[in-house]
Every structure is written in structure tokens, then in C-alpha cells.
Design a protein around this nucleic acid. Sequence first.
DNA 1: AGCCGCGTGTGACGCACATCACAAACATTA
DNA 2: TAATGTTTGTGATGTGCGTCACACGCGGCT
Lengths: 240, 240
Amino acid sequence: MLSPYGMEIVESCLDCKLRADHLFCDMPPATLQNFEGIKFSTAYPQGAVLFVEGQMPRGIFVICKGSVKLSINSPGGRTMIVKLAEPGEVLGLSATISGKPYEVTAETIDPCQINFVKRDDFLRFLKEDVDACFKVAEQLGEKYHNACKEVRSLGLSHSAAEKLASLLLEWSSKNGAAGKPEGRLTLRLTHEEIAQMIGTSRETVTRLFADLKKRQILQSKGSTLVIRNSGALRDIASHN
Amino acid sequence: MLSPYGMEIVESCLDCKLRADHLFCDMPPATLQNFEGIKFSTAYPQGAVLFVEGQMPRGIFVICKGSVKLSINSPGGRTMIVKLAEPGEVLGLSATISGKPYEVTAETIDPCQINFVKRDDFLRFLKEDVDACFKVAEQLGEKYHNACKEVRSLGLSHSAAEKLASLLLEWSSKNGAAGKPEGRLTLRLTHEEIAQMIGTSRETVTRLFADLKKRQILQSKGSTLVIRNSGALRDIASHN
DNA sequence: AGCCGCGTGTGACGCACATCACAAACATTA
DNA sequence: TAATGTTTGTGATGTGCGTCACACGCGGCT
């Protein structure tokens, strides 16, 4: 079956082939059966906003396909991108559990398939099933872990160059884990968005890229980046 | 009963008078009974290190009395204080659940009573009890929430003045919640440590305090601070 | 008393980076 | 192909604050 946005749709979680790779989705069959009963599967186009920071929680969103940009915004219009969430991640979890407003804003960056579960249904589901509840704890632990990494990078690493280098290495290694050739990656974000990820200005990102190319550490054709000297990049990333 | 460090000790969680105020400890009696069986209650002096960032998780620590400083460190010797944890909070939770290294370093800043539970015991405890598991999820949500606040303050608010003002307001309001007179607070941290909380240098903190006093916004006698103009302080804190 | 260690106060200096202000390179639409 | 938007490249300029350097105050020693 095809969604309106030209993407194949997975009908049921039970026969989702990628389940084992999807952190949250890898639950015992019985638990999954219950989940199946309360989820709503929806397809979203690129640029759809799932929820906004400060909204009261309506429920949780499990990413099946596509990626989602999580960001926080200051009243003054400043934006910071916290994370790019991938399939298998659950969004809106802590807000849904605590009943407090969503912490971040979630916006799809390509066509996505996403399972939604209403807050009440989800809470009932949790209280009835230890396995599910434990999965949620794991998932929240993961979120906390990521947030800690973010804090570390924002608070301890100094130069913008350092943070950009770390980001590139992280992306590159994520490629490696996915079987793609490591050391080669395609940028899916604009310089502006990259700047928002590492907490600097767009111009600085541009200049840093220019510098890395001049120093033969990076090479680019279109939106494809090749890391020519990963050693040097690592040096920059861990320069205390 | 008195501990070696001149602090009264609570024998059992079941008749702990502060239980209702302690987020994690407020569990159903049956659950609490189980917890009672696996916990080890210990008294620590000031300056004790519970665990260090990067260590493999031995288990969780529930604070009964006293406060604990959570920090992260860069290989280059830089330190950032992430949080001051209070009674009712659980430390080492996400590491214990995921089996990955502790995210932060935990050090007592005054004499503490703390319940320790070994990793295996704790995991078994969780898998047997949905209520406990749900409490853990709540607790992790809380941790995630705090981390998000940290990210927001590090990534969006720019000037050091802004962050210091926010910190003071937060402390002051925490006093208010505890019944103490709001707008009056005693500093328990040195300028150096405050600097580590807001990610700046000690000298900057000193200068900022001097400036706030000169502008009649703050007033200090010894380690006691009085906020004379909370409006102005709020303005500084939310200056976009 | 005098000495030491620790926290604090304050000046001088420089650099990394924000900000502004364009121009050039693409992408989209009509 | 012109017309309009979006993303990128680069210079000029200013400034917040990190860093170094040193002096002062205060409490705990012996």
C-alpha cells in the first residue's frame, strides 16, 4: 500500500520487518498485540509539525519511517535543534507520562510514517504491562543519555570548530553502522540548521566548512561530503 | 539513632515521615515493602563520591537526606555542574537500566543518608512490580525534563548575566516553595562552583555579582543574599 | 602573633565569534 | 528566460568574556 506522499506503508507492527532494529518496537508478541489495539498509524508529509514545545501532551508518537527534527525555541525567536530522531524512537514520552507540557517541538524532515497513541490509552497500556513499562523506562533512559551528551557538548567543548567536527564524526559513524561507506555522508540540513544544532551562527558554519576544505580535511561535491582526513577531524573534535 | 556524621538516621522507608514529599519514595505499601528488602541504607560525610562518570553501573542511589552535586567533566579538566539533587531523587537510574556507564559524577555536598540498591536486585524488583516500574519512568521523565532545561539555558540564553539571573531566581523560588522567605537565600556554593553551573568563569561570576550589587538589585551580608529588585532580575533573566 | 590556604575582587589584553551587509550560486516558479 | 526566493560565500566591525596576573580579606593552624 502506498501513502499519499509516495512512501510504502507498514500495516501492522506484528509483521514489521524492521522491528528488531527499532528500539522501542522490539517487545514481546503479547505486549505488541495490545499496542496494536490502541495505535493509530498515520503518514505525514515533509515539514509536518507533530507537536509544539509548551503544548499539553495529547499522546506519544512512535516513528516507523522517516526522521523528525526536535527543537527548542526561545521567545526571542532563537532556535536550537536538539536531535534528529529516527525510526524506533518514541516522541512526547516524558510529557505524556508526567502530564506536563511537551519539552520540544517535533517536525518531520521527510515523509514519515508514525504511530500515535492517545495519552489515556497509553497510560492504561503501561499500567497493565510490566514489559511495556520497562521498555518505556529504557527509552526514557536513552533520551536522558542523549540530553546529557548535548549538555556535555554545549557546556564543555569550547570552540565551534570542535562541535562541528564532533557532529560530522557522529554522522559519519552513524553511516558506518548502517552499512554505508563511513567517511562519506550527504548533508540533509542547511548550514543554518547545522548552526542551530551546534549553537553558533550560520556564517560561522560556512566559514568552518571553507576552512576544513582548504586544509584538505573535507571535500564536497554538491551535498555529498567526503572526510579525507578523519584523524585531523578527530583531533579538532577532542581539542581541550 | 545518630550516624557518625551527626545526622539523625531514618530506619525504614515505611515510617519515613517525608515520604509523601519524596517523589520516588511515594509508592504503594506493598511495593515499598519489597524495596525495603533490597535496599542498603548508608550515611555519607560531606564530599563523598557516590560514583564517577564513565564507571559501569553498580546500582541506584536514593537520596533520603542531604544534597548531592552532579557534574560532568571533560578530559581537559573542565567541570560543569549539572544539578544539585535533593531528597527523593534517584541517582544512577538510566545507567543502571541500560547497563551503560554512569552519565555524571555524584558527590555529596553535605552529610547525607542514602539508600543503595544493587543493579540485579533493582532490575528484578522492577520486572516484578508495575507500580515500581512506573515510578521509575516518572523519575526518568523528571530527569529528562531537567536536562532539557539545562540545554535550553546553555543553548538559547546568551549572556552569562542572563544565566546567573535565572539561577538566582530559581534558587529563590525553591526557597519560596519550602516555606522560607522568598527573595532571601544563602549561597551554599563558591563563585567557582556557580561559574561551573552556568558555564562561565569564576571571575565573570564575581564581576556580575559586583555589578548587580552596584545596581541595587542584590544585597549581601556574608553568604546571605537578598534580592532587592526581583523585577529587574527577571528582566535580565529573560533578555532575548 | 605570624603563616598559609582558600575564596574573592579588579585591571589589562586578546580572541573567537555574533552581527551586519552585501554578492554570488542555485532552485523554483511562472 | 526572466523573476523570485533560498542557500551559500566573504569582508568589515564590534564585543563578551576567557585568561593571566596580582592584591586583598578571612579563618584555621601552630
